[in-house]
Simulated scan of single mutants.
Amino acid sequence: MLRIVCVAGARPNYMKIKPVMDALERRGAEVVLVHTGQHYDESMNDVFFRDLGIRPPDRFLGVGSGTHAQQTGRVMTAFEPLLEELTPDVVVVVGDINSTLACALVTAKAGPLLAHVESGLRSRDWSMPEEVNRVATDRVSDYLLASSPDAADNLRAEGYREDQIHLVGNVMIDTLFANLERARATDVLDRHGLTPGGYGLVTLHRPANVDDPEVLAGLLKALGEIAGGCPLLLPVHPRAAARLAELGVPGGIRLVPPAGYLDFIALQDSARIVLTDSGGVQEETTALGVPCVTLRDNTERPITVEQGTNVLAGRDPARIVSTVTRVLADPPPARRPELWDGRASERIAEVLLTGGPSGQRARPTDTAS
């Protein structure tokens, strides 16, 4: 029986690690869940564990917040002796947060095989810390588990060998489909006095959008114009709370506390439009067939634009307003990528437990140049 360590550190990881753990355990693997504690508060952690039915972590590192260097260093320092104690066969990291990179670096030096879920995503924007984390994590990984063909193509273009690359589909969509009916049964719309199709949903949390008061003020100006024709609901991310309180929001935009997973899926599912800077929300709206406008100049998930319901608007207020106006008048057709079928985690388990079709499980002898 293989021992597999699965690492989570923050809210974006939870929806990705849950189906992978379930699929591995169904096939007899011993799964150890390690929570680094990169994000840890009631609204961003405990409620998601409850909503998703994730068991309490087997190990909690409690690293907390800090600068990128401080946080990454604390995770590495805490994870290294744990890895030596557990002696796993494989370590699975997901996404692109600091914990992902930190645990990947420790694993690569310690010897266990390393699998990266959501490998190959690229925004090509090096001002994003997540882009650095993605590229560096892929560089030291043995199993590159890609969620879409464009991600696999990125890896090939960077020189990775074909036997390292596995196109498995999107685990976020596994979790979405597994919980969609439960989400639709919640009373979140009634609690907020909303009707299906009668509001827009907004999320803002990227540092480039919320840390600069001038940028955030421009975004709020655009949202205020949009809210004149479509009322907007904005669950406040802890990162943005202070800035929003300081700047104030225009009329028509209602601030509410952060939503749990089920409530947030229900809010997306019934929205007329979603405006976001989140990569995961771009994917979820594509799977739900809900029009999405991304408040960024680029995306590491271009498949949501090419095959989904997502439109890039950038951060210029006038462009945002014109883009949203166009999307509201003529919504993009609902389309979902082929492998976003709710079975990505099963394909991941097949790769990790059998080595995939090639049957190879050895660490590669050469890597990307």
Rank of each mutant, 00 (worst) to 15 (best):
R296L: 00
E214S: 13
L204K: 03
A318T: 06
L144K: 14
G251T: 08
Y160M: 09
R347V: 04
P258E: 09
K109R: 15
R74H: 09
A240F: 13
D138V: 06
L144M: 13
P258T: 12
H68L: 11
G251N: 05
D163C: 15
G95Y: 01
W340Q: 01
A10K: 01
Y261C: 02
N170S: 06
T87K: 14
A136C: 14
L176V: 04
D297F: 13
P19Q: 07
R326K: 11
H39P: 01
F49A: 05
R361Q: 14
G289D: 04
V32P: 06
G279W: 00
G356I: 14
V31P: 06
G359C: 12
G169N: 02
V140T: 09
C6M: 14
L167S: 13
Y40L: 10
V140G: 10
I173S: 00
T67Q: 02
Q268H: 07
R243H: 09
L288K: 04
R182G: 00
K221W: 15
T365L: 15
H237Y: 06
L220W: 03
G228S: 08
A104V: 10
M44F: 02
G279I: 00
E300K: 00
V20I: 14
G279S: 00
A242T: 14
T203V: 07
T77E: 15
V324P: 02
D174A: 11
D269T: 09
C6K: 12
I4P: 12
A23C: 07
D174V: 04
A69E: 08
R326Y: 03
D174G: 06
P332V: 03
G279T: 00
E42H: 12
A69Q: 01
A23V: 06
G252P: 04
G252R: 03
L105T: 12
E42P: 05
A69M: 02
L339M: 07
G120Y: 07
D142C: 13
Q360E: 15
K221D: 15
E306W: 13
S147T: 14
A108Y: 10
G289V: 07
F60W: 10
T365Y: 13
M44R: 00
R239A: 03
P317N: 03
E80V: 10
A23T: 08
D41C: 01
M15Q: 14
A245M: 13
S147V: 13
A242G: 13
R11E: 00
A157Y: 09
D89L: 00
L189A: 04
R363V: 03
I4C: 10
A69G: 11
G28F: 08
R50E: 09
D212H: 11
S127C: 13
Q71H: 12
I97L: 11
V106T: 08
I265V: 15
I273P: 06
C292W: 01
V47A: 09
T77S: 15
A217Y: 08
R55K: 15
G73A: 07
A29Y: 11
P258H: 10
D269Q: 11
E346N: 12
S43E: 15
L247I: 01
P81C: 07
V32K: 11
T304P: 00
N45L: 10
G252I: 07
E350P: 11
R347W: 12
N98P: 09
G169V: 04
V31K: 10
L2V: 12
I348T: 12
M128A: 03
H39N: 01
R182T: 00
R27T: 07
L219K: 01
I165Y: 15
